[in-house]
Design a protein around this nucleic acid. Structure first.
Length: 271
DNA sequence: AGTGCGGCCTGTCCGC
DNA sequence: TGCGGACAGGCCGCAC
């Protein structure tokens, strides 16, 4: 479910409710997520005061004095602030109970999400260490994209979805950014000019920022920390629009598979 | 080293 | 209405 804008929307939503609070208890109803949620994690987190809520790619980082709780929402995860005594639903796997009678509740039907505890700098954690630049930071640019893509034969869409190239660009926004940049998703990454790389970097940055401003894209069941949906879906140009007419040229949007992922593009606008 | 695929899960939707 | 199969927003880890 959540791509970077949804994760950022979640981060901003929960931050005011968790920063400064202390974890009084961690309730694990279903430990089998992407990696098992251990008793040690619950023990290490309990008693810690949450000092910061950061994001790196699609990871949410809850910082405390002695370590960091790393959260990933996977495909179907969500976080909500709920009264601590509210009834847990079927897929509410973990509650981080806070000292204000509220809980940060992690729900994840497909269980591709993750909760990990790490001491020391979370950016050095194996899962985060090899992530590329943040797409909204200044070190991500057309020049970077151009340099990284030389002599690479992979389709440009797969390339920008590689988290080592740039962190957090998922399927929806990869499709949308390529449309905005006028680039065919199958084009070999290494064959893009620097100018087109610049256009693509700008498009990635623009589409992610826009989506964050609109509270994320609601597909199926994305909801923010209060349970309300995002409004970016109506802004999509290609994602999920197979056969519908292009907003720019009226031709039919096409669907192909690229690296096992649905890939949408306009045959008139993207080359 | 780079590329492409299988697999982890549940829920939903579509065609028969 | 029921059933099987395909598919879904992510990403690690493996084989080539």
């Amino acid at each position: 479910m959540p791509e970077l804008p949804e994760v950022e929307t979640t981060r901003r939503g929960i931050a005011p409710h968790v920063v400064g609070r202390t974890v009084t208890r961690v309730i694990v109803r279903q430990p089998q997520l992407r990696w098992p949620v251990t008793a040690a994690l619950a023990q290490q987190t309990t008693g810690e005061r949450i000092e910061s809520v950061d994001r790196r790619g699609k990871y949410i980082l809850l910082g405390t004095h002695s370590g960091t709780l790393i959260l990933h929402l996977g495909m179907s995860g969500s976080l909500r602030i709920v009264p601590a005594d509210s009834t847990a639903m079927k897929h509410d796997h973990v509650d981080i109970v806070l000292n204000d009678q509220h809980s940060l509740r992690f729900r994840d039907p497909r269980r591709f999400g993750a909760l990990l505890w790490t001491r020391g700098n979370p950016r050095h954690h194996p899962l985060l260490a090899s992530l590329g630049p943040e797409p909204l930071d200044s070190d991500f640019s057309g020049a970077w994209l151009h340099r990284q893509s030389r002599h690479r034969s992979a389709p440009i869409k797969s390339f920008v979805m590689d988290s080592r190239v740039v962190a957090g660009v998922g399927n929806i926004y990869a499709n949308e950014a390529l449309f905005l940049a006028g680039i065919h998703p199958k084009r070999a990454a290494g064959r893009l000019s620097e100018q087109r790389c610049r256009k693509l970097a700008d498009s990635i940055r623009w589409v992610l920022s826009e989506a964050i401003e609109h509270g994320g894209t609601t597909l199926r069941d994305f909801v923010n920390e209060t349970g309300s949906p995002g409004y970016f879906q109506q802004m999509l140009h290609v994602y999920g629009r197979t056969g519908k007419s292009c907003h720019q040229c009226q031709r039919g949007i096409r669907l192909i598979r690229l690296g096992q992922r649905s890939t949408f593009y306009c045959p008139g606008c993207q080359h």
